[in-house]
Amino acid sequence: MMFAAAAAAILVALALAITRAIKGPTVFDRVLAGNSVGTLAIMLLAVVGFLTERPEFLDIGLTYGLLNLIGTLSVLKFFRHGDLAYDVDSEPKS
Rank of each mutant, 00 (worst) to 15 (best):
L69P: 01
I18T: 10
A17F: 02
S36A: 15
E56G: 05
V48L: 15
A13F: 07
I22R: 00
R54Q: 15
A6L: 15
N35F: 08
I22A: 06
S94G: 14
G65T: 11
L44K: 00
A4F: 13
M43A: 15
R30T: 02
R20T: 06
K77P: 02
N35S: 14
A33L: 04
L69R: 02
G24Q: 04
D83H: 09
T26I: 08
A33F: 03
L51Y: 07
N68V: 02
G61N: 02
T52L: 14
A9M: 09
I70L: 15
G71F: 05
F50I: 08
N35I: 00
N68S: 13
F57R: 07
G65K: 02
K93H: 13
K93F: 14
T52W: 12
F78K: 07
A9Q: 07
V37P: 02
L69E: 01
F50R: 14
I18W: 07
V27Q: 12
V48Q: 09
K23F: 04
V31N: 01
A9Y: 07
F28L: 13
R54F: 12
D59T: 12
A41T: 12
G82W: 08
L16K: 04
L58V: 15
T72P: 06
I10S: 07
G65F: 09
L32N: 09
G65Y: 01
L84I: 15
L32T: 10
F28E: 13
F79S: 03
T39A: 15
D83Q: 10
H81D: 11
A85Y: 10
P55D: 03
A7M: 10
D29K: 05
G71H: 01
L45R: 02
V27P: 01
L14E: 13
L67E: 00
R20I: 11
L76P: 04
F79R: 05
A13G: 05
A5T: 10
T72Q: 04
D59F: 09
I10Q: 08
A21G: 07
L66D: 00
L69T: 07
L62P: 01
L40C: 03
A7N: 07
G61C: 11
V27N: 12
L44S: 09
T19K: 08
F79A: 06
F28P: 00
A33S: 12
I70W: 06
F78M: 13
I18H: 05
A41W: 00
T52C: 09
A9L: 13
F50C: 06
F28Q: 15
A4C: 04
